[in-house]
Amino acid sequence: MSESTEKKMVRLRSSDGEVFEVEESVAKVAKTLQDMLEEDCADAVIPITCVRAPILTKVIDYCKDQVMISSSSSTTNNPNERTEQERKAWGQKFMEGVDSSTLCELLVASNFLNIEGLLNLGVDKMVSMIQGKYPQEIRDMFNVVNDFTPEEEEEIRNQNAWAFERDPYYKKRSSSK
């Protein structure tokens, strides 16, 4: 009996219809789900309408890891406790190989599910992806359309021309004039 309460399972359905069964403690890492589960509706399949299956898998991985850390930190001498550095390294590894579109989806998911730690990881990753990039590179990365008129773009660049000095894309444009 006690075992069944310990391992209460929750089912989550991704936007593309896949159903994931996870322990309640894992689902509760997501504040949105936690609030919901506290209202006692754990037997239903919870639709996560804005998250696709591959993304939800990643989110669940993250939640599982959080559960592992917190459960072990209550015991003394726990081998899973991480130092600041290890946490950072773990976060980097977790985000390793995540491409820009997956990252966007992860951000939306962690935002929707209200998982602050994952959101922060995602934003840090995003900032590091943008770091050192020029506008066109950022556009390519995130599928953003440049909707400036050439005059507007010129003006923006001129406001802080120093930042664009080594922009290869920009040089090409200005020399073609």
Binding site: G132, K133, P135, I138, N146, F164
Partner: peptide
């Protein structure tokens, strides 16, 4: 979260 003004300025020039 951005910490470098250069990144900030570049991001401004992405789109409206």
């Amino acid at each position: 979260h951005m910490t470098d003004p250069k990144d900030f300025v570049n991001a401004r020039a992405v789109c409206r």
